[in-house]
Deep mutational scan, measured.
Amino acid sequence: KFNKERVIAIGEIMRLPNLNSLQVVAFINSLRDDPSQSANLLAEAKKLNDAQAP
């Protein structure tokens, strides 16, 4: 279950337009470290993406 959620979360994070490459890598590394947190990490990535919108 967590592996599928992690793959989906990674794909979504990679498509967030307002994150820089270091932020994307940090979120992906966090997902690798704890796949059970996929939903929480994706939500945090989306919040950061929205906050950094031009």
Rank of each mutant, 00 (worst) to 15 (best):
R6M: 15
D34E: 06
A45Q: 00
D33W: 10
I8Y: 11
Q52C: 12
F27S: 00
F2T: 12
K1A: 14
E44L: 12
K47H: 07
K1D: 15
P54N: 10
R15E: 03
A9N: 02
A9P: 01
A9S: 03
P54C: 14
L48A: 05
E44V: 12
L42W: 04
L48M: 07
R6P: 13
V7F: 14
S38A: 11
R6I: 15
L19C: 02
A51V: 09
E12I: 15
F2V: 12
E5G: 06
L31M: 05
L41N: 02
A43G: 06
I8A: 07
L48K: 03
N40M: 12
M14A: 04
P54S: 09
S38R: 06
L16A: 01
N3Y: 12
M14D: 01
E12S: 09
A45I: 02
N3K: 03
R15A: 07
D33I: 14
E5D: 13
K4R: 05
A53L: 06
F2G: 12
L22V: 11
I13C: 03
A45T: 00
L41H: 03
S38M: 15
Q52Y: 05
S30V: 11
V7Y: 14
N18M: 03
F2S: 13
E12K: 14
N20K: 11
Q52K: 03
L16V: 00
K1T: 09
N40W: 14
R32G: 12
Q52P: 02
I8W: 11
L22T: 11
R32K: 12
N40L: 12
V7H: 07
I10E: 13
N29K: 11
K4F: 03
R6K: 11
E12D: 06
D34A: 06
A39H: 09
S38D: 04
S38T: 08
G11I: 11
S21R: 13
E5M: 13
R6T: 15
I13Y: 01
R6H: 15
P17R: 13
S36Y: 09
N18E: 01
A39T: 11
N40G: 07
L48P: 00
E5N: 07
A45N: 00
L42M: 05
P54M: 12
V7W: 15
L42D: 00
A39L: 13
G11W: 14
K47T: 11
L48E: 03
I10T: 04
I13R: 01
L19P: 00
E12G: 07
E44H: 08
R15T: 06
R6F: 15
Q52A: 05
L41M: 10
E5H: 06
N40V: 06
Q23K: 01
G11K: 12
L42H: 02
R15M: 05
Q52M: 11
L48T: 03
S36L: 08
Q37C: 06
R6S: 15
I28W: 06
N18I: 01
R32N: 15
D34Y: 09
E5Q: 09
E5S: 06
K1R: 12
N3H: 13
I28T: 03
Q23Y: 02
L48D: 01
A45K: 00
L16E: 00
L42V: 11
A53P: 05
K4D: 15
L22F: 11
L16M: 12
E12M: 14
N49C: 02
V25Q: 13
K4A: 09
D50H: 09
N18Q: 02
R15V: 04
N18R: 03
A53V: 08
K47G: 05
K1P: 13
K46P: 01
F2Y: 09
D50S: 07
K1W: 14
R32W: 15
N40T: 12
E12A: 14
S36C: 10
E12V: 14
S21P: 11
L48W: 05
L22G: 09
E5A: 08
L31E: 01
S30P: 01
L42T: 05
Q37K: 11
Q52D: 02
A39Q: 08
N3C: 15
L16K: 00
L16W: 01
N40Q: 11
S21D: 05
R15L: 07
K47A: 10
A53H: 07
K47E: 07
L16S: 01
K46T: 05
N3S: 04
V7I: 11
A26E: 06
F27H: 00
A39D: 05
N20V: 06
A26F: 14
E44Y: 14
P17Y: 06
N40Y: 13
A39R: 13
A43D: 10
A45R: 00
F27R: 00
P17I: 09
V25H: 11
D33E: 09
L42C: 03
K4C: 15
R15Y: 04
N40R: 13
I28S: 02
G11T: 08
P54T: 08
Q52N: 08
K1H: 13
F2I: 14
V25G: 08
Q52R: 05
K46R: 12
I28A: 03
K47F: 07
K47N: 07
I10R: 03
S21I: 12
Q23N: 02
L22I: 10
N29P: 00
D34I: 04
P54A: 12
N3V: 05
Q37D: 06
P17Q: 08
M14K: 07
I13K: 00
N20T: 13
S21W: 14
K47W: 09
K46E: 03
L19Y: 00
R6Q: 15
N18T: 01
P17K: 13
L41A: 08
F27T: 00
N40H: 12
L31H: 01
A45C: 02
R15H: 05
N3P: 06
A53N: 08
E5I: 10
K46H: 07
A45W: 03
K47P: 01
G11H: 08
Q37S: 05
V25M: 13
V24E: 01
E12Q: 13
I8S: 04
L19E: 00
V7G: 05
V25T: 12
E12R: 14
L41C: 07
N49M: 03
N3I: 09
G11R: 13
V7P: 02
R32L: 14
K47S: 09
P35H: 05
A53Y: 06
I8R: 12
P35K: 04
A45V: 02
S30N: 07
K4T: 12
S21Y: 12
L19A: 00
V24W: 03
L19T: 00
A53C: 07
R32T: 14
R15F: 03
N49H: 02
S30L: 14
I28Y: 03
V24R: 06
P17C: 11
L31V: 08
L19F: 02
G11N: 11
L16Y: 03
D33A: 13
V7Q: 14
A45D: 00
K4H: 08
A43T: 11
E44F: 14
M14S: 05
Q52F: 04
K1F: 08
A26N: 07
Q23G: 01
F2N: 13
P17L: 11
I10V: 06
D34P: 02
L41D: 01
L41W: 07
V24D: 00
P54H: 09
R6C: 15
I10D: 01
S21F: 13
P54I: 10
S36R: 08
K4Q: 14
N3A: 06
I28D: 01
Q23S: 02
A53I: 07
P35Q: 05
R15K: 08
E12Y: 14
N29F: 15
K46N: 05
L16T: 00
K47I: 10
I8D: 03
I28P: 00
E5L: 13
E5C: 15
E44I: 13
N18S: 04
D33Y: 11
Q52T: 04
N20Q: 05
K1N: 15
V24L: 08
G11V: 07
D34S: 08
L19Q: 00
F2M: 12
R32A: 09
